[in-house]
Each structure stands twice: as structure tokens, then as C-alpha cells.
Design a protein around this nucleic acid. Structure first.
Ligand SMILES: [Zn+2]
Ligand SMILES: [Zn+2]
Ligand SMILES: [Zn+2]
Ligand SMILES: [Zn+2]
Lengths: 140, 140
DNA sequence: AGAATCCCTATAGCCACTATAGAGTCAAGA
DNA sequence: TCTTGACTCTATAGTGGCTATAGGGATTCT
């Protein structure tokens, strides 16, 4: 069976442009072409596209996905590198979570400074964003 | 007092290029220029830059910051819009946190499928990323 | 035959910067 | 005075992961 790009995209749950983009980025091999120059994907190429999309749904970078695809081409070697890659990605997700938690706290503190019933010039939210030295080199 | 761009950037804790970028995006007014065509920032312009950087450290979009800067130019009006803007931003941060938590759980489940001591062809992490129908329209 | 729907390439846009190239300006030291 | 070096200027391109557009060609349905 072979699939045109639209069907491959539908099967993988992405847009046609995204499929062409992955080809351009070297994540998908250039597929066969029909007489009319349409891309024709094999089952295994569609599977590779789905693999990429699944990795993307886990928010892996295309660079990480490229590595995983390379692992797939050395099936008899150890999978330790795969586990390491996932571990690093989990670490990365967790640092983002930590950063967002800090951010939320800061925003809540700021929000609590005002009830929204003042004038702008006396709004303590704006005051909290104004003239604070926390980012200047003088204060650091 | 007036400051050249390098000093303004240092005071606000950002790069020189970033300052020029904000000017180009209309977040900072075009400053005065010296005889030699160097940008010269006033105290209040440096303060505006610090304001922008503080907002950015809270991960607000430049579009949101533009709105906040507009609020600052109507000091006698109600600050309700400011509070609303912050509330919406908090919502936005919280949805990102939720998404990341789900993501982490998915990654942990995947990670638990393998100890890293197999061959790549038998690695259940790769298997978990392969051939699963969760993103195809067929399965959806 | 005509219309709708697909497909092609090439290019530009998104966000918030960052980096580079190639030139000009200025202050301090020899 | 000359030179060195740090600073500044503009313009342009790159980052990531797409998305959108323009301007055409192919295929399919009626
Ligand atoms: Zn307020
Ligand atoms: Zn600050
Ligand atoms: Zn494994
Ligand atoms: Zn999937």
C-alpha cells in the first residue's frame, strides 16, 4: 500500500505541511513519487511519521527525535541511550514545572496587591511592576 | 542624566540587542540621539525598560506588556483591566502547568517500561512510541 | 468539459529574541 | 598625535516547530 501525503498526514494526525517540513528537516526520508510528482509513502514511512508525532506529543525536540530514529537503525545495540534520553527529557519537563510554579506564586503575590477597584495610578500591581530593582545589575 | 544603550541594558538586566528590539516593536519610544548618533535614554525611559523586563520575567507576552504600558498612560482610569490581564495570565500559566503534569506522567509511564538493559529492538520504550494508534484519525 | 479537491514548490510569517557582518564613534594610554 | 579597544550603529539572518500564502499542476467526480 502507498499513501499520498494527505492520507499519511491524516493517519498520523498532523497537517500536510508538517509532513513536508519533517522531510525537509531530514526526519522523514524523501518518499517515492508518482508519475504526477506526488509523494507516495509506504506503510513503514507512515509508521515513522506516526512515531515522530507521538514523540512530539511528548514534547520531545526534533533533535531528540532524530536521535531516537537513529537508535532504531541499530536494533541489536543496547537501549541504555534511549532510557537516558527519556530521563533527560523528564528532567527538562520537571525544571519547566518548577519554573512555572515559581512564576505562578509571583503572579499570585502580585495579584493580591490589588482588588481591581483603584485608579491606575494607585494600582499596586503596576507599582509592583515599576521601579523595582530586582533585574538591575546595581542590585544584583 | 542620560544613558547610552549599553548602560541602559545593564541597568535593566538585558542585552543591548534586546533594547533595540523593543524599540523596533514599539515598546520603547525612539530615544534622543547624541551627535555621533548614539541612543541616549532618560531615567524614565530606563525605568520603562526595567518595567518591560520585569513583566517579561513574569513571562508576559510583548502584546500584554504593550497593553500594560497603555494603561500607564491613563493614570486616572480604573485599574480593573490590569487585574483582569494578570488573572488571564495566571490562567494561562496554570494551563501550562496542567499540561506539563500530564506530560510528566506520560513520560514516567513510558520510562517505567524499560530498565535500560535490553537491546534496542526489544526496548519497550521504543515499542511504546511505535505503532500506537493514539494520534491517527482512524483511532480517534 | 468543468469544478472540486488534491498536490507541488518557494517563500514569508509567528514569537522573543540572538548573532553576525561591516562600518562608525569615542575615550584613554603611549 | 596616533592607536588601541570598547562601545555603538544599521541591516540581515538564524533559532524551533511549525503555519500560511501565492501561484501553479494533477486528479477525480459529475
Ligand atoms: Zn489594580
Ligand atoms: Zn524587577
Ligand atoms: Zn529500553
Ligand atoms: Zn501515539
Amino acid at each position: 500500500m502507498s499513501y499520498k501525503i494527505g492520507e499519511a498526514a491524516r493517519l498520523a494526525g498532523c497537517k500536510v505541511e508538517t509532513v513536508r517540513y519533517y522531510e525537509q528537516m531530514g526526519l522523514l526520508p524523501a518518499p517515492a513519487r508518482s508519475e504526477g510528482n506526488f509523494r507516495l509513502y509506504s506503510d513503514s514511512q507512515v509508521e515513522q511519521l506516526s512515531f515522530i508525532r507521538h514523540c512530539r506529543s511528548l514534547d520531545m525536540s526534533l533533535e531528540n527525535i532524530r536521535e531516537l530514529l537513529q537508535f532504531r537503525e541499530m536494533p541489536s545495540k543496547s537501549c541504555a541511550g534511549i532510557n537516558q534520553l527519556i530521563d533527560e527529557h523528564i528532567d527538562c519537563v520537571e525544571s519547566r514545572m518548577d519554573a512555572l510554579q515559581q512564576l505562578r506564586q509571583q503572579l499570585r503575590n502580585l495579584r493580591n496587591r490589588c482588588s481591581g477597584e483603584r485608579s491606575i495610578e494607585s494600582c499596586k500591581i503596576l507599582h509592583g511592576l515599576t521601579g523595582c530593582p530586582c533585574h538591575s545589575t546595581e542590585a544584583g
